[in-house]
Write a protein that binds this DNA or RNA. Structure first.
Lengths: 152, 152
DNA sequence: ATAAGTGCAAAACATTTGCAATATA
DNA sequence: TATATTGCAAATGTTTTGCACTTAT
């Protein structure tokens, strides 16, 4: 698929999803989405911005940042777990797992023997020096559910 | 266990670990560790700082921040996965899993049917509105391993 | 036309760094 | 006493906010 096709395809995909939410499809949004798909390393807004500003010198960092947040709200993309918040510390160094509330950021520890015993795929084990693993469960916590209901 | 006992116990634990690394046990470090253990929600340096500065008005934010980073380096505590770095975005919204290099932060996606099918424990499923899950594998990536070796 | 989106500049935070003063062992 | 640690102040970097201007529909 050449660049032109990718642009068209990307544009079409965005057009559908954006129409559903009454949002406009702007050149900036198309460029940002295209760049994010091309980048394989889960880049930050800064990284995306640096890459596209060569071809689009007028684009502002704010637009890139706000656009990515918009995409994430629509569910078009996801923020990498934990990233974007101040560094948080866990005194529990034994293996355990985390439930994270996507709304308020609350983290609840839980134990699960099944999860502790997971076999890491060879694809990863053979390529990297694996030190540990954990399961992250995402959802809405009890308090946030309550608040959402109360707001209605 | 009363406050006094906790203080003593905490002090002893720190003393052992710190002695191993030729680090000093200071009142600040004891207080910070004590507060982190008491806090169940994986607090940030700012949160810890706000809590202990009532009782220790002279303590500085830097000390709290640097101390927590020191603890993490010693393996006494852990930084919550992903926290502390700029928000990063993932265009892949389908279920998949992450290898994260603890040294350079590189994230590598991988698929694993076993992991996709994990059954979330009732303890969590019954209490929260679960939206998804993923497995985080931590380790040192190939490039970082190479660099460590080359530095010798 | 009009509502949504953009770019800019300033503000608000978080984090890091260098250094002189202080406290631990 | 010697060295590690602390507190402070300044620098850096990230994210957010308000607003006037521009653009997509």
């Amino acid at each position: 698929m050449n660049e032109e096709d990718l642009l068209v395809t990307t544009g079409e995909k965005l057009r559908k999803i954006f129409k559903k939410h009454n949002l406009k499809v702007t050149p900036q949004r198309v460029v940002i989405y295209k760049e994010l798909i091309r980048s394989k390393e889960h880049p930050s807004a800064t990284v995306i911005f640096d890459r596209i500003k060569r071809a689009f010198p007028n684009i502002s960092f704010d637009t890139v940042n706000r656009t990515l947040l918009t995409f994430a709200e629509l569910g078009l993309i996801k923020a990498v777990e934990g990233s974007g918040e101040p560094k948080r510390f866990d005194p529990n160094t034994a293996i355990h797992h985390h439930f994270i509330c996507v709304r308020c950021g609350k983290i609840v520890d839980f134990k699960c023997d099944e999860f502790d015993k997971l076999q890491i795929p060879n694809e990863i084990k053979d390529r990297f020096n694996v030190l540990g693993h954990k399961v992250i469960v995402e959802g809405i916590c009890d308090e946030c559910s309550k608040n959402i209901k109360n707001k209605k």
